[in-house]
Nucleic acid binder design. Sequence first.
DNA 1: ATGATAAAAATGAACGTTCATTCTTTTTTT
DNA 2: AAAAAAAGAATGAACGTTCATTTTTATCAT
Lengths: 197, 197
Amino acid sequence: MAKLQKSIDKRNALISATIDLVNNNGFHATPMSKIAKMANVSPATIYLYFENKQDLVNKTYIEVKAKYTDYAFATYSQDMTVQMGFETIWKRIADFKLNESENALFLAQCDNTPIIDEPSLQEGIKHLQPLLDLWERGRQEGVIKLVSDYLLYAYAINPLSFLMIAQKRGAFQLDASQIEDAYHSAWSSIKTCDTKN
Amino acid sequence: MAKLQKSIDKRNALISATIDLVNNNGFHATPMSKIAKMANVSPATIYLYFENKQDLVNKTYIEVKAKYTDYAFATYSQDMTVQMGFETIWKRIADFKLNESENALFLAQCDNTPIIDEPSLQEGIKHLQPLLDLWERGRQEGVIKLVSDYLLYAYAINPLSFLMIAQKRGAFQLDASQIEDAYHSAWSSIKTCDTKN
DNA sequence: ATGATAAAAATGAACGTTCATTCTTTTTTT
DNA sequence: AAAAAAAGAATGAACGTTCATTTTTATCAT
């Protein structure tokens, strides 16, 4: 147990050093030597935990993405109404993007650049399924617009990424009432027109 | 004239090679030697046009951003109503993101990573002013919600970036009626509740 | 329990490569 | 014939990765 515990600590240190450095310097200015230094480890040690740099960043992406979706669905259950389920998930996602901003920023960077390889991107998408299932149920109930998941995500969820980045850059600050307002915009943009609320 | 003309051609070739390579390989995998090769130029020649690699990518960003805003405002005039003005600008932006997708993709990558330095980012933002002015007018007329420019941009414009990237990845395809639908979502999310339409 | 020993984990230094940039020379333009 | 532009080869630094060695941990006969 002691051995395994120690290994996991090092692995975690490497992953969070990767997130930190890629967020602040970009992937192009994040050498293995700096990652090692920040994780208090020798460069050679990285290769005991990961195959190479690409593998390190792929695995980091997958872990952060899993953390994101776990967080998003933590308070959601399938027997909620569509509207209630959406509100539950949306607000958790907002929480994550605005409070766990280091993780969220890393994901934004990966999702907008070719630094993660295609298999790992696919792996990361899988965990979003509960939201897609909820939307499908909403469409069948006539509560959610009959448009593709991509459009729904673009309107309802993606604006939060932009706001997270703006906030991180110090451009402005989201308060609770703005978040409430943002939620209503999100819901309005995906519900059918004649739905109450 | 001939000399200047030739120079501008080379400069343009370098800038479009940069866009192409950064889009497809990422900044970290875009060496000067490849940029030179794609532009049919010696590596040393790049340094006659740009100070260094950072300068090349900064200048590329600023040029593409200017092209983006020029395109966005080309058919807009200040004497339009707020709603008409917004529709005009929004649809031009949608055109740009979906048709000029190489340029749009490059901007998305720059806006979500630390590859561009702060002064160049600021320079790029300036050209968006007409849209911000329109929104300010809309707020005063009671047509646009009393929320910050960041929120308006997040709801109304940013979703197009997500859709552009999804489309580029081949995940799905936007048709004309979906764009119309997206426009109505955008307008709904920023207009005041009691505005007609 | 203890100490010898084998296995695993970790390290710092070293390797070969690639990179951004510069230098010297050649070509093109004026 | 002078000046400007462009080129290819060269340079030194930095990078990802591996190697040879040391340190730590686990095993187990006594």
